[in-house]
Design a protein around this nucleic acid. Structure first.
Length: 294
DNA sequence: AATTTTCCCAACCGCGATTTA
DNA sequence: GTAAATCGCGGTTGGGAAAAT
């Protein structure tokens, strides 16, 4: 026989999470670590399915998540990774450990897609050289660009481009940080392996930023500080990022193969090198043009 | 000031991959 | 090997907030 069911379908609560539920979930994860989601509802008494618990944690409660405005560097990364990988948000998110795949997906759908469309349309109207240098990595990127062009009708220029802070609980970063504050002070013990991995990852990210700075991309200091501020969490915040490296599978892509064959290396694959060394310049070009929209 | 429209994002849904008995 | 369940991902939607009328 198969595995036992994770939770009853009857009596499952849906909709926005309450502060109480968040506390219960964070408390449980603080004690047991993320994972084994099927046992979360039964162990905690939460009337949520395991799936909902996992989603709430990974998309909102997980430490190290940065919310609010995306930096130009982040935008550039997203634009190019999307062109390269398509809508593989989890893979894209693994390059932006502070952002969730859901956040990136939302940001792409609500902002970047429009920007790129605008860029393409303007490009057609003014000149035809916007296709100058196709991204490395094959035809997927151009195909993706074509899809973008044909799929969407550009909406009117957006009058507001502000990341407002909704008053609802679920959107209150302040509430969450307060909620988590207590847990930060008594982190679970991390074994030495985890710590080593953590150090590698942090170094990799610092290197990441330094590389970016060499391309005249400003290092977002707050990002660095945020990263370091969660160093005592036993790597919880990094699990997704490190685990997701296994998702960088594009069987037809030599770049992805290169990445896949070195899962334990500090994550600086050909793809990353490309992104850091060259793509930022292209991204800036894209954004400079599209910034006019806003 | 009241109503309507537009936009954003947290959460849900469905599906394929993976795991487990 | 197979069936049944979980896990993780991408697509979609509903409710609330902001902007427009």
């Amino acid at each position: 026989m198969g595995r036992p069911p994770c939770c009853d379908k009857v009596g499952i609560k849906k909709g926005p999470w309450t502060p109480e539920e968040d506390i219960i979930l964070v408390s449980y994860i603080q004690e047991h670590g993320p994972g084994n989601w099927r046992s979360v509802p039964t162990s905690t008494g939460l009337m949520r399915c395991s799936k909902s618990c996992r989603l709430r944690w990974t998309n909102y409660l997980r430490p190290g998540i940065k919310r609010g405005n995306f930096t130009q560097h982040e935008e550039g990364m997203i634009i190019h990774l999307q062109a390269l990988l398509g809508n593989r948000w989890a893979a894209i998110a693994s390059y932006l450990p502070q952002r969730t795949d859901n956040d990136i997906k939302n940001y792409w759908n609500t902002h970047l897609k429009k920007k790129i469309n605008k860029h393409h349309i303007d490009g057609h109207m003014t000149s035809s050289d916007h296709s100058a240098t196709p991204p490395r990595g094959g035809g997927d990127a151009t195909a993706e660009a074509r899809n973008l062009e044909t799929n969407t009708v550009r909406p009117p220029a957006l009058p507001r481009f502000t990341h407002s802070t909704p008053s609802t609980y679920a959107s209150s970063t302040e509430n969450i940080s307060r909620l988590l504050e207590g847990w930060m002070r008594s982190p679970p013990k991390a074994d030495t392996t985890t710590q080593k991995l953590q150090q590698q990852q942090q170094q990799s990210i610092i290197f990441h930023n330094n590389s970016a700075s060499s391309n005249n991309v400003p290092i977002p200091q707050e990002e660095l500080e945020l990263l370091l501020s969660f160093e005592n969490l036993g790597g919880i915040g990094w699990e997704k990022a490190s685990a997701d490296t296994s998702l960088h599978r594009t069987p037809s892509s030599a770049i992805a193969d290169e990445y896949e064959t070195k899962p334990q290396q500090p994550p600086l694959s050909l793809l990353e090198k490309w992104l850091l060394d060259e793509a930022t310049g292209q991204a800036e070009g894209l954004m400079e043009l599209s910034d006019a929209v806003f």
